[in-house]
Nucleic acid binder design. Sequence first.
DNA 1: TTGTATGCGTTATCAG
DNA 2: CTGATAACGCATACAA
Lengths: 340, 340
Amino acid sequence: MATRADVARLAGVSASTVSYALSGERPMKPETRARILAAVAELNYVPHFAAGALAGKRSKAIALLFAGSELAISPVALEYVTGAANAARARGYHLILWPSDETALADVKRFSLSGLLAGVLLMEIRLEDERVEALQELNIPITLIGRTKNTGEIPFVDRDFSAVAKAATSYLADLGHKKIGLLTQRRGKDELVLGVDSRFKSEVLTAAKSESFEICELSVENSAQAGREACAALHENHPDATALVALPDLATMGFLSAAQELGIRIPHDFSVLALNTPDNQVGLTWPPLCTVTIPANEMGRAAADILIDQLKAEQTQSRIQQLWAGELSIRGTTAKSPRL
Amino acid sequence: MATRADVARLAGVSASTVSYALSGERPMKPETRARILAAVAELNYVPHFAAGALAGKRSKAIALLFAGSELAISPVALEYVTGAANAARARGYHLILWPSDETALADVKRFSLSGLLAGVLLMEIRLEDERVEALQELNIPITLIGRTKNTGEIPFVDRDFSAVAKAATSYLADLGHKKIGLLTQRRGKDELVLGVDSRFKSEVLTAAKSESFEICELSVENSAQAGREACAALHENHPDATALVALPDLATMGFLSAAQELGIRIPHDFSVLALNTPDNQVGLTWPPLCTVTIPANEMGRAAADILIDQLKAEQTQSRIQQLWAGELSIRGTTAKSPRL
DNA sequence: TTGTATGCGTTATCAG
DNA sequence: CTGATAACGCATACAA
């Protein structure tokens, strides 16, 4: 591995000049710079990451904490991850994947103190999230994918649940539906309330109220099986419901397959509109799911960009709190109410 | 951030003694060690990553190269990633996600020269893969998830395609099937032949031959739509086929839904056995897919472990070339041949 | 059993 | 416009 000293020798300049040539932090005779760049290319010189981090007091790595220990990570989460990883890479940063139980606070602190990280991206945000406070106390820049109850000045990227809910309900209202099911997610450990669950549910209920829908809520775990059971339950208890607004993705797919088995023709007899299903899952069912799309990749990108903007303390080009709506994507699972 | 000097001061020892206490690289009076550990806890000391890497010449980070730039990463790949990330973390290493086009060789080299990485995990391995040679030339330890044509001494973790194929075909033979479809994957760029595609296909063909199956191959892209079309084609051209062995996961799900739409009752009329579908996708269809399972999480773990074993040059506890078979998991999509 | 000294490859602050 | 040089925090060979 060639070092900076090698380059300096070859180019006939001092070591520090090499650094400046590469960083552009100070003006230089073009000729000198050219000579240096040639030497760099010749020797295949790449700055040493650790040396830079040690001397400069700032590393070029950010971490993404994610809950991937046991359960399969959700398809949406994956898109956030790839989006963030790509954005980081595009800006010369490394994205470190840190599998971490949502509650492993000690670990998070420890890790953040190792000096490897310039900043941290958090997912699966709870309404009250101790990780956020802890990292702020440690003075580690963070950006959330999701948001806590009190957002204050914390940078985040999240869905615009209100807009999504409105788009969904007004579309169903236009189709003439009056009584609809609402499939919501129930998590195992009740105390850990994720912002996404709570906000999404309340916004949909609010939007539904203003459309005067009659709502039957079905709160289930996010599994295909749970979705299947929910379908049976709705069919039996509320046979007059004509549509479903669905949040948990796996359960949504279970619901759909169960409906067809029960002889419910979709979308002719019953409409299904999914609000939290990523595009890459859409094609798996038949008919393909009508959704309000989640720009998860872009959101992941945006989160990384916001974080890196902070680090560079550059004029933050983008708003540090962003809401993304997504758009109604009409596909085969929705149609006019059969009661019209 | 507390530094090693702070700890030394508090414990009343020299700085190096702190290092030795933590690494255990030399014997020490238990009492001294205890005092040091107490000071470490008291000050919340965490060794500085960059300083360690710089001084010790070896970092504690490994990278996982993955193709996640544009297309959605596949569900299986995700499990490899989480498995590897968890294993790395468990052993005190960091897993860096490096989104990298399969062909971006220059980038890979560059990255590997930055001194950040102790080793590299590669996925989406092609039969001829220049990344492998390049990294070996740079003397970067690697481990593959998948394998090249000539495996030589290269450490890898891969599926035991032969075992999988045999399990699948013998099961279908037991059920009395004689003529079966084989759904294989066709990639966009033809020259980049992934080992998984080529090996899987040939092993299934071999196993099928020894069971005297009549095989109709359907080569498709891995999308639900392509799977749907394949189903229609098979139904029309080979109505006497009674089962399908399926490789590409998304296409498999498309095939299944199309079959039901065409009025083909599964599994009564037709059996479907998926060989490359991860567990977390299984519940999404109805009936749930019969598969030969992919121990992807464990494989990811194993890959990271093998790599880290190499780095530590410890007695490599595990074989450096591992094949994982997975097991037949009988679920609702297979049954006796209707022609019996 | 413990302490001392050196060097790792940068960045940044001085001089010149 | 460019060259020295002092940190940076730690690992490790060497000395005691």
